[in-house]
Structures are given as C-alpha cells and as structure tokens.
Amino acid sequence: MSVRENIANNIVTTLQAITSPVAVKYVTREPFAFDKLSNAQFPAILVRSAGENREDSSLGGSITQRMATIDYELVCFVKGSVIDTARNNIIEAVEEGLDVDRLRGANALDTQITNIEIDQGSIDPIGGVIITVRVLYQYTRGTT
C-alpha cells in the first residue's frame, strides 16, 4: 500500500476514535448524501484527498527520495439545537484528535490544519465545516 493511502487510512481511523468534545459517529472516504443520514449518524465526516505537491529531496534516479505535501478536505456535517456550537465542537474535536499523532502512524513528517470554512447556514438545519488538513511526507520514488 502507498504512503499516501496509509496516511488517508490513518486519518479515517483517527477520526472514528474521537469521543471528545463530541463523539464522531460516521466517517468515510466515500461520498454520501448528508441529508439522508439519521440523527444518530451526526456528526459525520467525509475524508477526501485534495491537491498534492511533490519534489525531489535527493538525487539518485529510480531510488530518489521525494517530498510531498498533500491536502485532505474533511467535510464535516453537524446537527444540534445550536449549530454554531456544534460546528465549533467538531472543529475542536478534529484538531485535538489529529494532534495526538501528527506523524500519522509513522507515515508522515507533520500534520497541520491549514484552513477552516463554514457553511454560513446555507444547509440549515444541518451545519457544515470543511477542514483542510495538510500532511508532509517523504517517500522513495516508485513506492508512492
């Protein structure tokens, strides 16, 4: 399995284990219709790969070490009587959960949240947050 796939799987596993300040109920890498989820499935998170930058970090032909920075978008859906509080709770939960292992199970060099976007009430009565997570990793060419 590739390093980038290991990182994506680690993010999913990490998010599934979050219990505080809110327990994450549903995490997947497959798109889903958030309006079809039951109340028991909130908060829900869709993990999707986004852009990636790569560059050589050493010379050596086919055994060249490469550095990569990949972004993952965590599309979070929340429900509650106070949507803004629910959004804040999922942001805090995700950040604290991912900070426990910033090396993503020894597959990465660093993990950082770089951007947070809020839906501004456009999908009411559900709240939405997109959290961009940037992961820096190194790999050997041919083993991505």
Rank of each mutant, 00 (worst) to 15 (best):
L46C: 02
L46K: 00
L46F: 01
L46E: 01
V47N: 02
V47D: 05
V47Y: 03
V47F: 04
V47M: 03
V47K: 05
R48N: 00
R48M: 02
R48W: 02
R48L: 00
S49M: 09
S49G: 09
S49V: 07
A50H: 02
A50N: 00
A50Q: 00
A50L: 00
A50F: 00
A50Y: 00
G51S: 06
G51H: 03
G51C: 02
E52D: 05
E52I: 07
E52N: 07
E52Y: 05
E52S: 06
E52A: 08
N53W: 01
N53Y: 01
N53I: 01
N53S: 04
N53H: 00
N53R: 03
R54K: 05
R54A: 05
E55G: 14
E55L: 06
E55R: 11
E55D: 08
D56K: 13
D56P: 14
D56T: 12
D56R: 12
S57C: 05
S57T: 04
S57I: 03
S57Y: 01
S58E: 10
S58M: 09
L59M: 11
L59H: 14
L59C: 12
L59I: 13
L59S: 13
G60L: 04
G60Y: 04
G60I: 05
G60P: 04
G61K: 05
G61Q: 07
G61S: 09
G61R: 10
S62C: 11
S62P: 12
S62H: 12
S62W: 09
S62T: 12
S62L: 15
S62K: 15
I63C: 12
I63T: 15
I63V: 14
I63N: 11
T64R: 13
T64H: 11
T64L: 15
T64K: 10
Q65Y: 13
Q65I: 15
Q65V: 12
Q65T: 13
Q65G: 13
R66Y: 13
R66N: 10
M67W: 07
M67I: 09
A68P: 08
A68G: 11
T69V: 13
T69C: 08
T69S: 11
I70F: 03
I70T: 09
I70R: 09
I70C: 05
I70V: 10
D71H: 01
D71N: 01
D71R: 00
D71S: 02
D71Q: 02
Y72D: 02
Y72C: 01
Y72K: 02
Y72E: 04
E73Y: 06
E73A: 06
E73K: 06
V75L: 15
V75H: 14
V75M: 13
V75Y: 13
V75K: 15
V75D: 14
V75Q: 14
V75F: 13
C76A: 08
C76G: 08
C76M: 07
F77I: 03
F77G: 01
V78D: 12
V78S: 15
V78H: 14
K79C: 08
K79G: 08
K79T: 11
K79R: 12
